[in-house]
């Protein structure tokens, strides 16, 4: 067992943010999410946090652990020494709902504009209305939180939506390439990235949004050159 002091942001819109510290003992082979769940179950049922799968598939438990964007389910207790204070805060750049919960609507709106989810129709079973995404991106929003451009430009598409556009352009399957290129080539698209590179560092799923944005830039340059040469219809 390991005892940690979880210093968690409490509050919400209209309520000032305060830090509340909970002492909790959990098995050192577990993760921070388990510790937060134990706090909720044994000490404070009013604590707000999101979680579902516990294995980095749902992307719901993204918070800032000691300032850094991480999934709580991927943050081992063993990383912290006995008696350590671990500060948990909600993600940046999203509307704050309360405690550790943010509203991820801005990310979902962007994915909808790109026409994600990406569905393999041949994988749909009879009667199912939705397919599964086969992207690495779990849409946890960590990259959107870590990117300072997202926090300063309200229309910037952001790292994960741009990575999604790259993936769709790689394998369009009937998608409207023109509109995808218009989104990526917009003043608030791939060209708005300032290469701060925090998205690459915080991504828990090896998406590498920065590499995708660079790929989009090369794609747009080559496409523009082909258009100028008249080889492709505008």
């Amino acid at each position: 067992m390991r005892t940690l002091n979880l210093r968690i942001v409490r509050g919400g819109p209209g309520r000032p943010a305060t830090y509340q510290t909970y002492q909790v003992s959990v098995d050192e082979h577990l993760n921070i999410l388990d510790a937060v769940q134990k706090v909720w179950a044994t000490q404070d049922p009013t604590l707000l946090f999101r979680h579902a799968c516990h294995h980095a598939s749902c992307g719901l438990c993204g918070v800032r652990v000691n300032g850094r964007e991480r999934l709580m389910c991927l943050t081992p207790i063993a990383e912290f020494p006995e008696g350590a204070t671990v500060t948990l805060e909600p993600l940046r750049n999203f509307p704050w709902v309360g405690d550790l919960v943010v509203d991820v609507k801005p990310l979902m709106d962007r994915m909808a504009a790109i026409q994600a989810p990406y569905v393999r129709k041949d994988e749909l079973t009879a009667g199912s209305e939705e397919g599964t995404r086969f992207e690495d991106c779990i849409e946890c929003g960590l990259c959107m939180s870590a990117c300072p451009v997202v926090g300063s430009d309200s229309a910037y598409l952001g790292p994960s939506p741009l990575a999604m556009i790259k993936r769709l352009l790689e394998e369009p399957r009937g998608r409207d390439i023109q509109s995808l290129c218009a989104l990526a080539g917009d003043a608030h698209g791939a060209w708005r990235c300032h290469s701060v590179m925090e998205c690459v560092e915080v991504c828990p799923s090896n998406v590498d949004p920065s590499q995708a944005i660079g790929w989009l830039r090369r794609y747009l340059i080559l496409r523009g050159r082909r258009q100028l040469a008249g080889a492709e219809r505008r």
Binding site: N93, F94, P95, P106, S154, A155, L157, L183
Partner: peptide, 9 residues
């Protein structure tokens, strides 16, 4: 049609 983050705007 670009989505805008209202809280940032």
């Amino acid at each position: 049609s670009l989505p805008v983050s209202e809280h940032v705007a």
